Computed example of a mutant assay.
Amino acid sequence: MLNNVRVVLVNTSHPGNIGGAARAMKNMGLNQLVLVDPVRFPDPDANSRASGADDVLSNARIVATLDEAIVDCTLVMGTSARDRRIPWPVVDPREAADMVLDQAALPEAQIALVFGREDSGLTTDELQRCQYHVHIPSMPDFSSLNLAAAVQVLAYELRMQGLQREGAPTKMRKVETTAVFNEIPATAGELEQFYQHLEQVLVEIGFHDPQKPRQLLPRLRRLYGRVHLNRMEMNILRGILTETQKAIGVKAAGERRP
């Protein structure tokens, strides 16, 4: 769906920013880069900052004017950190992503996200060629973002909303090597054995007095119950209890060493 979304960089002065923007695009699944009258490109600094997104750079299209970059676009959004004299529809990055994805699903749609110069952004004339202005709500007294960072913000919002629309997960779970076993929840019986072992050790180290329990064990049950222990975690805790008993000279079965 994002194949018809292009990032347009206008009159970029530093090639490193072009490379950084390319990297941000590839991170989030965008591949169309259009450069309007770049000051230096191609350039080794661009490839260095791209960090593996060289294909985005090599396929970048270079044009002389913004009009050439957006001539076939059905939706054009320009980024701006400054207030303008003429009121214009303004959206934040999340709203912009929603609108872009709606448009991208239409037949023959082409969308442009336009970013201006590092020092001055887009001119008023350039912004007037955009149907919407995108404002990233940064701090008012320090609102200007690095070019690649601004591209990253919009590309990230597109990626997140795209995944959500597809019903795909937006976060990756860490999987341990023995994941199948590790993720099996501890049974009620295993938990009960753990609680008995825990109580035994707490008594042996003098932390718990069965004659004056003071709700210690119910509170510990509630604590561990909130965690939803799996079998690997249970084995770790039981191992800690066993090693504690060894350290104080008590066998795991609770018998005193001779």
Score class of each variant (00 low, 15 high):
residue 45 D to S: 13
residue 102 D to F: 06
residue 6 R to M: 07
residue 219 R to D: 05
residue 247 A to C: 05
residue 132 Y to C: 03
residue 50 A to L: 05
residue 245 Q to D: 04
residue 230 N to M: 06
residue 182 N to V: 07
residue 14 H to Q: 10
residue 165 R to V: 11
residue 177 T to L: 13
residue 143 S to Y: 05
residue 202 L to H: 06
residue 254 G to Y: 01
residue 103 Q to W: 05
residue 170 T to S: 13
residue 249 G to C: 14
residue 199 E to T: 07
residue 62 I to N: 06
residue 21 A to T: 10
residue 209 D to M: 02
residue 41 F to S: 12
residue 176 E to Q: 14
residue 227 V to Y: 06
residue 82 R to E: 10
residue 228 H to Y: 11
residue 170 T to L: 09
residue 104 A to R: 00
residue 189 G to R: 15
residue 247 A to N: 14
residue 20 G to S: 08
residue 257 R to F: 12
residue 65 T to G: 00
residue 235 N to L: 11
residue 104 A to I: 04
residue 93 P to I: 14
residue 6 R to K: 15
residue 206 G to W: 01
residue 140 P to Y: 06
residue 154 L to N: 03
residue 70 I to L: 13
residue 192 E to H: 15
residue 185 P to M: 00
residue 136 I to T: 13
residue 226 R to M: 00
residue 204 E to A: 15
residue 102 D to S: 09
residue 1 M to A: 14
residue 66 L to N: 08
residue 79 T to F: 12
residue 46 A to M: 06
residue 78 G to M: 15
residue 67 D to W: 01
residue 13 S to G: 01
residue 175 V to N: 14
residue 2 L to T: 08
residue 111 I to H: 09
residue 61 R to Y: 01
residue 149 A to D: 07
residue 120 S to V: 04
residue 137 P to N: 09
residue 232 M to Q: 15
residue 160 M to Q: 09
residue 130 C to G: 06
residue 50 A to M: 02
residue 136 I to W: 10
residue 251 K to I: 10
residue 86 I to S: 09
residue 181 F to K: 03
residue 65 T to N: 02
residue 164 Q to I: 08
residue 252 A to Y: 01
residue 21 A to E: 08
residue 35 L to V: 01
residue 21 A to V: 11
residue 252 A to F: 06
residue 9 L to Y: 12
residue 235 N to W: 09
residue 94 R to D: 11
residue 163 L to P: 04
residue 133 H to K: 11
residue 32 Q to C: 14
residue 42 P to G: 14
residue 61 R to D: 02
residue 227 V to T: 15
residue 24 A to Q: 02
residue 95 E to C: 06
residue 164 Q to C: 07
residue 237 L to N: 02
residue 178 T to H: 14
residue 222 R to L: 07
residue 191 L to T: 07
residue 129 R to G: 09
residue 138 S to P: 04
residue 171 K to R: 10
residue 209 D to G: 04
